[in-house]
């Protein structure tokens, strides 16, 4: 659905996006992860033809961008760095106005009302957007992206300004849409958000794409068994003498190559108390921290 090759954008001497090869496939919920200022938004803007690439190729829905913008963009719903709306118009009038400005058949009044309901806004609300809260504006922005039922959604920080309840609704809505066949390209600096929703992940670090893979592959078992015990020293001794190599104690946990059941049996037989045992998995946070400059994501996991 989205492919880029050697995508680069320079602002003066700064390479905001540097040689990025994106590969978003049909049916993906693709999580595009990066710290603030890592080049996410610039990349999204280039995919949509708002910012012109310094070099590199972009293909969206199988067509070259920005050359084929007129054919491609009607099939793309976008939310770019927050919503934009005419403050003196109602939510409904805003949707109708932007819809009427573009090519193709207009979405009817029923479709507008339906989309507003879908994102949790009241279609009968006649207040101007000026009176909307940040969360309501964000919902309106999403409604605008969904209005024409596009097969591809590009959402930049879609949960900005939403409360936890709103975030959950947004997530459920996107998961439903994806199940019905919509490909979703989601950019965010929130690790948890990506981890909960996405099937594929790309990580951008200072303009470079440092990771791009299936989430299940990235966070798969590492081949190590993780044991939690109150007597780590004795556990290390027992496992080493049982023939395990590279046994690593880390506080109350011990990491050892092998299979959980065997490790467990060895320890229990020797009378070592085992509180927990199981295959070690990496979290997305580990993956990201490993691939990026330490410190860039500090605090992002907690946010």
């Amino acid at each position: 659905m989205i492919r880029t090759h050697g995508l680069t954008k320079r602002f003066g001497r700064v390479r905001a996006v540097d040689d990025v090869d994106l590969d978003v496939r049909e049916g993906d919920v693709y999580g595009f992860l990066g710290a603030n200022g890592s080049g996410k938004t610039t990349t999204v803007r280039m995919l949509l033809g708002l910012v012109l690439a310094t070099s590199g190729d972009i293909e969206v829905l199988g067509r070259r961008m920005p050359r084929s913008a007129r054919d491609v963009l009607p099939s793309v719903g976008a939310l770019i760095e927050g919503p934009g709306a005419y403050p003196h118009l109602s939510g409904r009038a805003n949707l109708a106005t932007v819809d009427a400005a573009g090519p193709g058949r207009r979405a009817g009044r029923r479709r507008v009302a339906e989309t507003l309901e879908q994102v949790g806004l009241d279609p009968a609300d006649r207040r101007p957007v000026r009176a909307y809260s940040l969360g309501m504006r964000q919902r309106l922005g999403l409604a605008s992206a969904l209005l024409r039922r596009p097969p591809l959604l590009m959402l930049d920080e879609p949960t900005n300004g939403l409360d936890p309840q709103g975030i959950r609704e947004m997530r459920d809505l996107l998961v439903t849409l994806n199940r019905e066949g919509t490909t979703i390209f989601l950019s965010s600096h929130l690790l948890a958000e990506i981890e909960q929703m996405c099937t594929r992940v790309g990580v951008l670090d200072r303009g470079r794409l440092v990771v791009q893979d299936e989430l299940t592959t990235l966070t798969g078992p590492t081949g190590l068994v993780r044991v939690v015990t109150t007597e780590p020293a004795r556990a290390v001794q027992v496992l080493s003498s049982a023939g395990h190599r590279d046994v690593r104690p880390e506080g109350e946990t011990v990491l050892v190559p092998g299979r959980s059941a065997e490790v467990n049996e060895t320890l229990v037989r020797a009378g070592v108390p085992v509180a927990e045992v199981g295959p070690q998995r990496r979290s997305l946070e580990d993956v990201v921290l490993e691939a990026t400059d330490p410190g860039v994501f500090r605090g992002a996991g907690a946010a």
Binding site: G49, P74, V76, A78, A85, G102
Partner: peptide, 14 residues
């Protein structure tokens, strides 16, 4: 300023 320019352009409006 209202943020509507980008949405008009990706609608797309030439």
């Amino acid at each position: 300023q209202t943020g509507t320019l980008r949405y008009l352009l990706v609608r797309p409006v030439r």
